[in-house]
Nucleic acid binder design. Structure first.
Length: 696
RNA sequence: GCCGCUGUAGCUCAGUGGUAGAGCGCACCCUUGGUAAGGGUGAGGUCGUGAGUUCAAAUCUCACCAGCGGCUCCA
């Protein structure tokens, strides 16, 4: 290795040095202002401290708070958040002596630190103020983040004397990953100030942390293992400036207003009642309207694609699920079985224990029924009720089937995670040769639906089996075939997708459509799953051209996933402002005063005759107030009618999102325009008629 | 299920160990007003449920129920 070092900067220019050099030195050579603004560096694409010694030729980028185009620099934010996590950890250890640090990484919008608190002194939200006060002190002291390294053994000794088994474990892991040395970061002077075992890198000093906030508490598990130690996860966030922090908090507040649980209440779309039960959605008239429209829409598509609609009951015998493999292996995630009267009596009167009952159910000595956790077994029995020729395939059976699953109470969430939900389900029975085309057809359907609703922001996940897990059924050759079919279908979709081992269903690989909610959580919506397993278990056959029985392949698919989750996500997608065809209330007629109430009623009647969902506001308020109320309910169109309109047999129109009167239209034209917009699902728009006034 | 937080009027939220509040909404009255809140009056609450401490509990303690954030899980 030569002593001379060449540093290549992002613009391609090069600087030459006689020996090892730090990014800070290079920054100084470029300009004192850059050196001052620098918060970190990227050396050969890796984040690094400003004062790390670069010992060989490398590319170097000096990171400042913002990139050239004025956006926050991702790398700089990473360093900032990571550094703030250290400051928070120091502050927490001051507030709660004996707190043992575990792990504190940066996140997309902040950071957290997992910490084990003494049993008699858990952290509470009431501690946040004190923590933030301590953090403010540390930031004010502007102490440098100082890195130093120790040999593994010496470092281990040091950690042992400090007594945190978690940090020791971190050290072991670093060692196993190939680190010969352990690095520590002191917030200030090593040996004198607070320090932490840490890979780094960090911003130069605590003073660079412009604004921070301790956000929330959660529990977590050590190594994410629920049988391991429980830790407390403290979330925080930080920015280079107070302004950015305020903007961030403001965004969170805005997102809250879009939350489907907030909008659902405000717009009266659904209700969950604790007397009915956790996770059981009650669809109110407005929400039911949206659901009905969506079901109509998809029903039309299904007919077009050769599906047959079926209906099946909400329960099935335990034996059905023994055959499918869902009972007893998934008993924990299902509602308890329904048992006949005789056995219920035994349970209450003869002192038969629940354990005995449960055991008898398992081994099949008692028969009972189960609320269906999925629709497939029922559909399979429909398939199996007749012999099938290869000429009949594919057979596509569709149903809006309601299923029940015992989700953990802490997992329930509005409409997006519930215990009873309706899948827009279908099962396709086909020959092995047809799998590819059928999967592809299913994906097309999802694409049509997402397209019609303007949902572009989704990702596609191809769920493959985890080679290290035994939870999967079926033979490896079939799995390979099915996985390849999914991969090919996903490719043909023309959108980016990721392959994720371990995400497959227990019976086969799948393709999922995943979207994010307003607070960034991911939800799986549409899904297409290939299944070689259930046809085997139920011994399904079709007669092939060779006049011999053959095993069909099943495809499970639900483009929405479930009506509950999909509409929950849809509420947030539209922020409650649904397109006309989905709006529970499509147009509201607002008389200027009581004098035009009668005329307004005529308008409502005309709208209703055209099949539009129209309402009338005869409340005793001024037109301004009526408009405000309608706007808050996100009504797409308002028809204001006063004496002037009555004279012309017209209505004055106001559209959602437009802050003014669009002008008047003759009643007939208005009705027609609304119908056109509704039936075109928004490709035509009433607003377009006013293009000049609206500046569209 | 786990940790923390929360639970007061239909909704959003104040509140103190000593007889329960506001705004919005609702009802009624006045107002009849042309594009995002006209005025007045009134009704409405076992302060999540159950125990405990206390002369006294909505307030303090415990248990339970439910919601929220995260973790774990998700056929």
């Amino acid at each position: 290795m030569s002593d001379k070092i060449t540093i290549t900067l992002p613009d391609g220019s090069q600087k030459h040095y006689e020996g090892p050099v730090t990014p800070l030195t290079v920054a100084r050579d470029i300009g004192e202002r850059l050196a001052k603004a620098a918060v970190g560096a990227k050396v050969d694409g890796e984040l690094a401290d400003l004062n790390v010694a670069i010992e060989k030729d490398a590319s170097l980028a000096i990171l400042t708070e913002k990139t050239k185009d004025g956006k926050p620099d991702e790398g700089a934010m990473y360093l900032l958040r990571h550094s703030t996590a250290h400051v928070m950890a120091e502050a927490i250890q001051r507030v709660v002596p004996g707190a043992m640090l575990v792990y504190g990484p940066p996140l997309d919008n902040g950071f957290y630190y997992d910490i084990a608190f003494p049993e008699d002194r858990p952290l509470r939200e009431g501690d946040f103020e004190a923590i933030e006060a301590e953090m403010a002190k540390i930031v004010k002291e502007d102490r440098p983040f100082t890195r130093y390294e120790m040999d593994y053994d010496a470092g281990l000794e040091k950690l042992k004397t400090e007594g945190s088994k978690y940090k020791l474990d971190n050290a072991h892991r670093a060692h196993e990953a190939g680190s010969l040395k352990l690095s520590f970061y002191a917030t200030g002077e090593p040996g004198k100030n607070w320090e932490d075992l840490c890979r780094g890198p960090h911003v130069p000093s605590t003073g660079r942390i412009g604004a921070f906030k301790v956000m929330s508490l959660a529990s977590s598990y050590w190594h994410g293992d629920e049988n391991s130690d429980r830790l407390t996860r403290v979330y925080g966030t930080s920015f280079f400036s107070k302004k950015e922090l305020d903007e961030h908090l403001d965004r969170l507040e805005q997102a809250k207003q879009r939350d489907h649980r907030v909008l659902g209440k405000k717009l009266g779309l659904f209700h969950i009642d604790e007397t009915v039960g956790q996770g059981l959605v009650l669809w109110t008239p407005a929400g039911a309207t949206i659901r009905h429209e969506l079901q109509q829409f998809i029903g039309t598509e299904l007919t077009r694609q050769g599906y047959h609609e079926v209906f099946t009951p909400h329960i099935g015998k335990l034996d059905l699920y023994r055959t499918s493999g869902h009972f007893p292996y998934y008993a924990d995630s299902q509602f308890p079985p329904l048992v006949d009267r005789e056995h219920m009596h035994k349970l209450s009167e003869e002192g038969c224990t629940c354990a005995q009952l449960s055991n008898n159910l398992k081994v099949g000595q008692i028969e009972g029924f189960m609320l269906k956790p999925m629709n497939c077994p029922h559909h399979i029995k429909i398939y199996d009720s007749q012999p099938h020729s290869y000429r009949d395939l594919p057979l596509r059976l569709a149903e809006f089937g309601t299923v029940y699953r015992w989700e953990q109470s802490g997992e329930l969430n509005g409409m997006t995670r519930v215990r009873g939900f309706t899948q827009d389900d279908a099962h396709l029975f086909c020959t092995p040769e047809q799998v590819g085309d059928e999967v592809q057809g299913c994906l097309e359907l999802v694409k049509i639906i997402f397209g019609a609703l303007g949902m572009q922001d989704y990702r596609v996940r191809v769920g493959l089996r985890d080679p290290d897990s035994g939870k999967y059924t079926g033979d490896a050759a079939n799995w390979d075939k099915a996985e390849e079919a999914c991969r090919q279908a996903a490719k043909s979709l023309g959108v980016p997708f990721t392959e994720e081992p371990g995400e497959a269903a227990f019976y086969g690989p799948k393709i999922d459509f995943v979207v994010r909610d307003v607070i960034g959580r991911e939800w799986q919506l549409g899904t297409v799953q290939v299944d070689y397993n259930l046809p085997e278990r139920f011994d399904l056959t079709y007669i092939g051209p060779d006049n011999q029985p053959h095993r069909p392949v099943m495809i499970h698919r639900a483009p929405f996933g479930s009506m509950e989750r999909f509409i929950g996500v849809l509420i947030e997608h539209f922020g409650g402002a649904f397109p006309l065809w989905l709006s529970p209330e499509q147009v509201r007629v607002l008389p200027i005063s009581e004098k035009t109430n009668d005329y307004a009623m005529e308008i409502v009647a005309a709208l209703k005759t055209a099949g539009l969902r129209a309402t009338l506001d005869t409340s005793d308020g001024r037109i301004q107030a009526k408009i405000k109320n309608a706007a808050e309910m996100r009504v797409p169109y308002l028809a204001v009618v006063g004496p002037r309109d009555q004279e012309n047999n017209a209505v004055s129109i106001r559209a959602r999102g437009v802050q003014k009167d669009l002008g008047a239209l003759p009643v007939g034209e208005f009705v027609q325009a609304l119908v056109a917009e509704r039936d075109s699902k928004g490709t035509e728009s009433v607003r377009d008629r006013f293009a000049e006034t609206v500046n569209v």
